[in-house]
């Protein structure tokens, strides 16, 4: 359960967001490029500092400007799938997925077990030794997701998870993504500019414009947001 109330001055406008995400809920964050979606995700992850405000996860404060609390990203246990996937290019698929566990110094046997489990579930076991830079876009997306999920995060952030993919693959990947996110039961925020993602995956949706939430509601209602162009 995420509570968020932050303000930050950006170059062209001020970002001011107040959000709440319930247990296991999936929130779709919609908006055009440059409206502040990625900045918001980065603030939740701890990579950027808000000017003022509060972020709390499951009651634990991650950031509080009045109490001078700012937990570093490595301690927040938040999984993040970046728009470019950011797979470590010098490592194999296996090593990429194992990275988070190795950084936590888990015992080798446990790492092997968990990694095999996640890779098989994602259909990546056959390419586990492939260089992360040499696999297809769809495979990269699955690796990035597996890498983020394996650390058992309290919250999952996805930045435009389908935008880098081939148009023909998007529909299938969309369904696939929905399956996996619903099955892992972790509260998630998915940023997208494509309303089809909203309709397919999310529970709730918010429209972000110039740093402020202007519309909020259930995902099904999204189609009635006629003013928002459906880009593809």
């Amino acid at each position: 359960m995420l509570e968020l109330d932050v303000k930050k001055r950006l170059r062209d406008f001020d970002l001011e967001v107040n959000l709440r995400i319930a247990e296991g809920e999936i929130l779709m964050l919609v908006g055009d490029n440059g409206c502040g979606k990625t900045t918001l995700l980065n603030m939740i992850a701890g990579l950027i500092e808000p000017d003022v405000g509060m972020i709390a996860l499951d009651g634990k404060p991650l950031f509080d400007s009045s109490l001078k609390i700012d937990i570093t990203p490595e301690m927040r246990n938040i999984g993040y799938v970046f728009q470019s996937y950011a797979l470590f290019p010098h490592m194999s698929v296996y090593d990429n997925v194992a990275f988070g566990l190795r950084a936590r110094r888990l015992p080798r046997k446990e790492i092997d077990f968990l990694v095999k489990d996640h890779l098989t579930a994602a259909g990546l076991w056959e390419i586990r030794n492939a260089r992360a830079a040499n696999i297809s876009g769809g495979q990269k997306q699955r690796v990035a997701l597996a890498r983020a999920l394996i650390i058992e995060p309290d919250l999952l952030l996805l930045d435009e998870p389908l935008s880098a993919l081939d148009v023909r693959k998007q529909a299938a990947m969309r369904r696939d993504l929905r399956e996996r996110i619903h099955s892992c039961e972790v509260p998630s925020i998915i940023v997208t500019h494509d309303l089809r993602d909203v309709a397919c995956i999310g529970d709730r949706a918010c429209l972000l414009e110039m740093g402020k939430i202007v519309l909020s509601g259930a995902a099904e209602d999204v189609m009635s947001w006629g003013a928002v162009p459906s880009t593809g």
């Binding site: 990579l47 490595e74 927040r76 470019s84 950011a86 988070g100 950084a103 650390i151």
Partner: peptide, 23 residues
């Protein structure tokens, strides 16, 4: 080195030092 790699590593729980040497 793309900042995204560093960011990814840190969100995965790697300290700055670990990130430096491994990524």
């Amino acid at each position: 080195v793309d900042l995204a790699f560093e960011n990814a590593a840190r969100t995965l729980g790697a300290s700055r030092v670990y990130t430096f040497f491994h990524v």
